[in-house]
């Protein structure tokens, strides 16, 4: 059987909210090392992956590896029944067709349990090659969210370039053009408020803003985000979930024919 108890249950809610619009039906792979998911979006343009480590849970038990087929929209509806300070416990039998979720209030004076019907989902695992990044940027996740949101009001696509000057995001549309350049900083009070840029070679890539905006739904999970750019390859946008794991998004570029 599988059983996992998460004191900070709101993280599960935030994680599901961060991926449910891109991926609707997904498999969660459970093993004694934790919970993993990898899924393409419906249009097969991006790949979403998360990992929740067993040691990030208050209690984690998995007797043998399980695959849980989950409709994320339905799971999100169930998680709406949990309070923001609730402790969440998930349980599934080895051959069961439901995932039981239990929400306990902080004072443990209110307990909700819900059974979510599981489904059989065919999915393919993609191999993500080890990439030698051209440029790696770490920035506040609120900054990333603002850049992709602001540029979406100008155009549908963004050119992202890394040069000695910094990381430049450029959008072009019917109403005009906009450029946002981020330079490396070191003066912020907190380390995570700084922008860090590590560039190995200049790089310029074009992406659909719609997806980059969707990735920003993970903003509540982490105060920082890492953006990895590699020549002619998908961009990788990483949110580390403190003491628990990560959610990573990969988006294929737009390429001139």
């Amino acid at each position: 059987m599988f059983e996992a108890r998460l004191i900070q249950g709101s993280l599960l809610k935030k994680l599901v909210d961060a991926i449910k619009e891109l991926c609707t039906e997904v498999n969660w792979d459970i093993s004694n090392s934790g919970i993993n998911m990898q899924s393409m979006d419906g249009s097969h343009v991006c790949l979403v992956a998360f990992n929740l480590r067993a040691d990030g849970f208050d209690h984690f038990r998995c007797d043998r590896p399980l695959t849980l087929g989950i409709n994320l929209g339905n799971l999100a509806k169930i998680l709406k029944c949990s309070g923001s300070n609730d402790i969440i416990t998930m349980k599934a039998d080895d051959n069961g067709d439901t995932l039981t979720l239990m929400f306990e209030s902080e004072k443990q004076d209110r307990i909700t349990d819900v059974d979510l019907k599981l489904m059989s989902i065919e999915s393919e695992h993609l191999g993500i090659p080890d990439q030698d990044y051209s440029a790696e940027t770490s920035m506040p996740s609120s900054e990333y969210q603002r850049i992709v949101r602001d540029l979406s009001s100008i155009g549908d696509t963004v050119n992202i370039s890394a040069t000695k000057e910094g990381i430049k995001f450029s959008a072009m549309g019917d109403i005009g053009t906009a450029n946002i350049t981020l330079r490396q900083t070191s003066s912020a009070d907190k380390e995570e408020e700084n922008v860090k840029i590590e560039m190995k070679e200049p790089v310029l890539l074009t992406f659909a803003l719609r997806y980059l905006n969707n990735f920003a739904k993970a903003t509540p999970l982490s105060s920082t985000v890492q953006v990895f750019l590699t020549k002619d390859l998908p961009v990788q946008v990483n949110y580390n979930i403190q003491d628990l794991g990560y959610v990573k998004y990969y988006l294929a570029p737009k390429i001139e024919e």
Binding site: M40, H44, V45, C46, L47, E124, H125, L126, G127, I128, P129, D156, T157, M172, T206, A208, L233, P234, Y250, L251, A252, P253, K254, I255, E256, E257
Partner: peptide
């Protein structure tokens, strides 16, 4: 602005 590539053109099936 270029053609949107699919993610599977970069990451192969395992």
């Amino acid at each position: 602005a270029g053609a949107q590539k699919g993610i599977m053109s970069f990451f192969g099936k395992k």
